[in-house]
Computed example of a mutant assay.
Amino acid sequence: MELLKNFIKYKSDSKGLKKETLELYRGDIKDFEEFIEKDLLEIKKEDILKYIEFLKKNYQPNSIIRKISTIKTFYKYLLEKRMIDDNPTEGITIEKAPERELETLELWEINNILDTCTKDYKGTRDRLVIKLLVETNLSINDILKIQISDLEMSSYEYIFNDDKGEKIQISEEVSKDLEYYVKNVRDKLFGGNSNLVFFGFSRQSFRARFIALGKKCGIEREITPNMLRNTLKTMVKYNDEINDEQFFLDLKEKYFKIGIGDD
């Protein structure tokens, strides 16, 4: 499939996209070709509209938006390379999915979960990850990428998110917790020469442990780790302050003053 191969190479060379993004492009075009069963150079607008109707019955709105966006990018590329005379995606638009209300946890629920964490090494780790999720607004994947060398370089005062080029200041309490974990707990759980703070811990493992903690402390509704980071994010979204960044910092300070993380 030389056409698709050249397109992926073009996107890789010109945009420097990640491998995962390029694989999404490849998969989206292949899915479209398999459905339409036509030469990609002979596609008409009606073919794409037919495909959209199929997607609406089988995919979530955000996935549909991504797939059609990929197809539009693909045919724009073909037009620029003069492989086609007309762009069959011209004039085709997809409505954005309605914004879902973020699911959050109440302050008392977070405190109860923290209180339920065991006092052993694994419980210490769980408690620290929960505090980081609440305070930094990072995802669990980002938390699991935190490196010891970065923490040491900043005297444990900042978290570095290399994927987004972010430098996030953390509270004095969490800074001390991180340093204690690295120096006194981490090697008791998983040895080795890894530079990762939470080496040997996976997103799936934390999710399972977090859900179990919620049930153990009496939270009846279904909870997920994402709800931790959504808590502060939602408060920032609905604040009336002009300076969102300062509001976020003030809010974090209030959160940790009134009890989150007190052992």
Rank of each mutant, 00 (worst) to 15 (best):
R125H: 03
A97N: 11
L78H: 01
L78A: 02
T118F: 04
K38F: 07
L132E: 00
K30L: 15
K50W: 09
L78P: 01
L128I: 10
I68C: 03
E46W: 04
K119G: 14
I64Q: 02
E33A: 10
E46M: 12
E109Q: 04
Q60C: 05
D115Y: 03
E95H: 12
R127L: 05
R125N: 03
E42W: 09
K45F: 05
R100M: 15
L78Y: 01
I48S: 08
R100Q: 15
T124W: 02
Y121E: 15
T73L: 14
L105E: 00
D120N: 09
N112H: 01
I94V: 12
N58F: 11
I29R: 09
N111A: 10
I84W: 06
I71A: 09
L107I: 02
L107N: 10
Y75I: 08
E90H: 10
E109T: 00
C117V: 01
I92L: 12
R66G: 02
E80G: 11
L105I: 01
D126A: 10
R100F: 13
L133V: 08
R82E: 08
L128T: 06
K96I: 14
G123S: 03
M83V: 00
D86V: 15
G27C: 10
E103S: 14
I84D: 04
D115I: 04
E42Q: 13
F35I: 12
L79A: 09
R82F: 05
E106D: 13
K72Y: 04
T70N: 11
P61V: 05
K38L: 10
L49P: 00
K131Y: 01
D28I: 04
E33T: 03
K76A: 10
E106L: 12
P98L: 15
K30P: 03
K38S: 07
P61Q: 05
P98R: 15
K72F: 06
K122H: 15
L41M: 08
R100T: 11
I52E: 02
D31F: 07
L40G: 00
R100L: 15
R125Y: 04
D28E: 12
K57H: 07
T89L: 07
L40Y: 03
E80M: 13
V129A: 02
K57F: 05
G123A: 06
D39W: 06
E99V: 10
R66H: 01
I52L: 02
K96G: 05
L128N: 00
M83D: 02
C117R: 02
T124K: 14
K119C: 13
T124N: 09
R66V: 06
E53W: 07
T70M: 09
Y51T: 04
N87E: 04
K50D: 11
F35C: 11
L41I: 03
E53K: 14
E90T: 10
G91D: 00
R82T: 07
K56G: 08
E99D: 08
K38C: 07
T118S: 15
G91L: 12
L41W: 09
L102I: 14
